[in-house]
Amino acid sequence: MKHSQSTAPIAIIGMGLMGGALMRMTGAARGWDIDTSRCVNAASANDVLSTCEVVFLCLPNSGIVREVLRAADLKPGLILIDTTTGDPAEMAELGVQLATQGVHYLDATISGSSAQLLKRDVLVMAGGERAVFEQCRELFAKFAREAVHVGPCGSGAKMKLVTNLVLGLNRAALAEGLAFAWDLDLNPVETLDVLRRSMAYSRIMDTKGEKMITQDFTPQARLSQHLKDVRLMLAASSIPLPLSETHRQLLEKAVTLGFGDADNSAVIKAF
């Protein structure tokens, strides 16, 4: 490659919440989205992929990633950093296929929301060649407090599903606890304060507790996206995941109630 990753032309494909935050933190000069109002110095996805050296993919699922890349002019030496929470098997297969074209692929999933990324308070979990991961460390440091290499392509997606399983259940448990407190006529603000001081504490109380109490569901991460993740977990697992199955039902109920595009803290509406 001609340039180090700190100076190479950087671009984003998928300018939603996470993509927009990444553009701001990495200083990417170009960004493309299917919503043309979000595009920055980019006429098409292929325009970005054929002219930039490092491209972040911030797309809803791995099927859309494949669709975007299928018609693209991918030049050898290109580094694709896929932050999509997708199907681990598909992402592993994609890494193998891209390698035959001389394209470097990291499934570099992100633990944390777009709001946390803007504070450099997220964790990157990357699968792919370690050498490519090491080349991108300086770039990851622009928006993440830490980045870890977790194995070959597909491993980042697997680790993201594991972390999202625990994170999502923490969120659902908090929602149920606060709903229970309301039912017992406890003051929800005081209840949240006590929960934070107790052995029940989790960081989710700091990021989602107030949103649940005030019913402020301005999206930091959309509920429908987490439902997609839970379905991926259930599909990827060869063992029963009974808590995640219940969580799926709760999220589907929240979507039915009209909260699919709301923040994932809106899971409390299912109670």
Score class of each variant (00 low, 15 high):
residue 86 G to Y: 09
residue 190 E to A: 13
residue 78 L to V: 00
residue 158 K to H: 15
residue 56 F to C: 02
residue 100 T to C: 15
residue 193 D to V: 00
residue 106 L to V: 01
residue 22 L to I: 10
residue 260 G to N: 12
residue 56 F to N: 02
residue 225 Q to G: 11
residue 112 G to Q: 03
residue 52 C to P: 01
residue 66 R to D: 15
residue 37 S to G: 10
residue 40 V to G: 07
residue 179 A to I: 07
residue 57 L to Y: 09
residue 95 G to P: 01
residue 233 M to G: 01
residue 157 A to M: 07
residue 181 A to M: 01
residue 224 S to N: 13
residue 246 T to H: 13
residue 9 P to K: 03
residue 248 R to G: 11
residue 266 A to K: 01
residue 185 D to I: 02
residue 72 A to L: 14
residue 89 A to I: 11
residue 59 L to D: 04
residue 85 T to F: 02
residue 270 A to M: 11
residue 251 L to G: 05
residue 140 F to A: 15
residue 13 I to T: 06
residue 28 A to C: 02
residue 100 T to S: 15
residue 4 S to K: 08
residue 52 C to M: 08
residue 229 D to L: 04
residue 1 M to F: 00
residue 243 L to Q: 09
residue 155 S to F: 07
residue 59 L to Q: 02
residue 162 V to D: 07
residue 239 I to L: 07
residue 207 T to Q: 09
residue 147 A to G: 07
residue 215 Q to S: 14
residue 249 Q to F: 06
residue 26 T to R: 00
residue 216 D to H: 06
residue 107 D to Y: 02
residue 188 P to H: 15
residue 149 H to T: 04
residue 8 A to C: 03
residue 197 R to G: 13
residue 61 N to F: 00
residue 69 L to C: 13
residue 40 V to A: 05
residue 217 F to Y: 14
residue 247 H to P: 05
residue 126 A to C: 15
residue 38 R to K: 14
residue 70 R to L: 12
residue 222 R to M: 12
residue 150 V to L: 13
residue 254 A to C: 13
residue 57 L to N: 14
residue 207 T to C: 01
residue 213 I to Y: 04
residue 115 A to C: 06
residue 60 P to I: 09
residue 94 L to I: 10
residue 43 A to L: 05
residue 228 K to S: 04
residue 120 R to G: 13
residue 64 I to P: 08
residue 111 S to K: 01
residue 227 L to H: 00
residue 211 K to H: 07
residue 34 I to S: 08
residue 142 K to R: 14
residue 4 S to P: 07
residue 163 T to S: 15
residue 256 T to L: 13
residue 79 I to F: 08
residue 3 H to W: 10
residue 41 N to V: 03
residue 82 D to M: 08
